[in-house]
């Protein structure tokens, strides 16, 4: 049901039954490497092309998630999936292998939480029994679509983020588990005029700010109601901007905030300002965060996945970058 201006409260009980995470080699070497279900040793991920590589990541993640949950494929009502590539090719090509309904979504890097929010809402409506929320991104497919050929020797500035290679999937249903999806806040498209495609942290910070403030207002909550407020990929540039704007608005998240893009790599992994891409928030949330909720180290987490709705043609036409952020509340449940 609608909660406040932009939020949904899943009052009928929506749960994440299982998740699966699949990463590339660089992510495996990062601090959260041991939390992933599977990691490919090479960036090609057993594919002949980069696009096939990304499909292999997503396909592996959705298959693993279904396997882990034990839910038969014909019982799956719906897949809600999206990625960064034109026409969402990764998601649509992977969905060819399933006999379920498919809802394709695009929210740039916010797709992880957008797909989870939509899947949860459709479970909460009690029209569907099982839904799979999934997303992926790949360094090389994103580079070639949004920026330059991977081997091009142009110098990147320190504000650049590095697209995370990986995929994450979550099976959502009304069957109780330790992880409850309590609610979601659907973001507005926010544009503060940032127009540098190599500095998406700065562009996305206002969108994340807007969603976090709206979330706290809609649910009438305080920052201390959360053990962790996680943003998707604001990087080392966008993170301090987010904190500063929130602080000015009377919201201090310093002690509970972390950014997936800063958690996924070691600082010496040459990733500039941090990780980005749909898989940044998907890998951290569906791996590390879910494990922490299960073990009881965390009780309530707000994941705010941030997306720069970037289009190279619009940038060449001197337009700015509109951004969006979607928040989902994950709560440890003892209902099981």
């Amino acid at each position: 049901m609608k909660q406040g201006k932009q939020s949904w409260l899943f009052q009928n009980g929506v749960y994440i039954n299982d998740t699966a995470t699949v990463s590339g080699p660089k992510e495996k070497q990062g601090p959260l490497g041991s939390t992933f279900d599977y990691s490919y040793e090479k960036l090609h991920c057993d594919g002949k092309t980069w696009e096939q590589a990304e499909q292999n990541l997503l396909s592996k993640a959705t298959n693993l998630c279904m396997e882990k949950s034990g839910v038969r494929e014909d019982a799956l009502d719906l897949i809600v999936s999206g990625d960064l590539l034109n026409q969402n090719v990764t998601s649509n090509y992977v969905a060819r292998n399933y006999s379920s309904s498919m809802l394709c979504v695009f929210g740039a890097c916010s797709t992880s939480m957008e797909s989870l929010a939509i899947a949860s809402s459709l479970i909460n409506s009690q029209d569907n029994q099982f839904a799979l929320a999934a997303t992926s991104s790949h360094y090389a497919t994103a580079e070639r679509q949004f920026r330059y050929p991977t081997e091009y020797g142009g110098q990147k500035p320190g504000t650049t983020t590095s697209t995370v290679t990986g995929a994450g999937a979550a099976l959502v249903s009304s069957q109780t588990s330790h992880i409850q999806v309590e609610g979601a806040t659907i973001g507005q498209v926010i544009d503060y005029g940032a127009n540098d495609p190599l500095d998406m942290g700065s562009a996305m910070a206002p969108a994340a700010t807007n969603t976090i403030i709206q979330h706290l207002t809609d649910f009438n909550r305080q920052v201390h109601d959360y053990d962790l407020i996680l943003t998707g990929d604001l990087s080392s540039v966008g993170t301090p901007i987010l904190k500063k704007i929130l602080y000015q608005s009377g919201v201090d998240i310093e002690t509970v905030h972390d950014d997936c893009g800063l958690m996924i790599y070691h600082q010496d992994q040459k990733i500039f300002a941090g990780g980005s891409g749909c898989a940044s928030s998907a890998l951290v949330t569906y791996g590390h965060v879910i494990q922490q909720l299960r073990s009881g180290n965390l009780n309530r987490v707000l994941v705010v996945a941030t997306g720069a709705l970037l289009n190279p043609t619009m940038i060449q036409q001197k337009e700015s970058i509109p951004c969006i952020a979607h928040g989902v509340v994950l709560k440890r449940s003892d209902a099981i």
Binding site: P157, T159, S202, V237, I241
Partner: peptide, 15 residues
């Protein structure tokens, strides 16, 4: 930091 002065006021955060 507001929408109108955003580009200017975030400069200290950009390396």
């Amino acid at each position: 930091i507001t929408k109108d002065n955003y580009q200017q006021s975030i400069k200290p955060y950009q390396p």
